[in-house]
Write a protein that binds this DNA or RNA. Sequence first.
DNA 1: CCAGTATCCTGCAGGC
DNA 2: TGCCTGCAGGATACTG
Length: 251
Amino acid sequence: MTSVRGNSIALRRPLNIEELASVLPGRRFFHARRRGKFLLLDTDPAGSILLHLGMSGVIQIVPAVEPLRAHTHLVLELGDGREFRFVDPRRFGMVVWLEPGAEADDPSLGALGMEPLEPGLSRSLPPLIRNRRAPIKSLLLDQHTVAGIGNIYAAEALWRAGIHPKRAGNRISLARLTALTDAVQEVLAEAIAEGGTTLRDFATPDGNSGYFAVRLNIYGRQGEPCLRCGATLRAEAIGGRTTTWCPRCQK
DNA sequence: CCAGTATCCTGCAGGC
DNA sequence: TGCCTGCAGGATACTG
């Protein structure tokens, strides 16, 4: 990276252009990792950019001559005629610099629960859920329990497993929780394979749409018939998030 | 500690 | 047509 531009505005955590400008020039990206819904971009010399796309965040890697999109908050000149740009209209995302070693103490990363795609999930997650009284939908969205499931995929997994989103975690049998964790992994794997879900403004890094939207079985289909049993699907806010479910085949 | 709610922000859809 | 209202999303601060 050769230079940093942008405005220090309030994102989920404050965007500190001064700090990034003092630290990034002369560094090189060499590795990208994911933890929950956070992205970690490791640099050489050592350090990392911690990044979250929030709801409307987009990363662009484009020729420097490309016109700036509205709400471009950060521009990193890459030194090869291209720029790394962070665009986020709704400002639910974040870009934060982490010094080497700071990762372990970072408040966002430190609180994250287990990874939803890890192999042992169907054994490690159910016991945690059975200790909690909150609605299962809220528990799936709680990043401190399992990190990386969003509103769409929580609804899809619950529908597949036939579990009512309001059912308390401690009132679901171990066998059904095993089925649920399997469903979570299936839904996530299929969505990733399809390139994600495009609703209004989500796009893949090349600017195209994800294709999973056409495969949604339950999310956003309230008032329409259940694809499994034909009952009319219902929707209601659970834990502040709109949730759609089938009143007949989710118990 | 846990559960539930309010908050941040913009773009878009729907109603009038 | 154009304004207004309300909703969508994720993490986190706050309240009970």
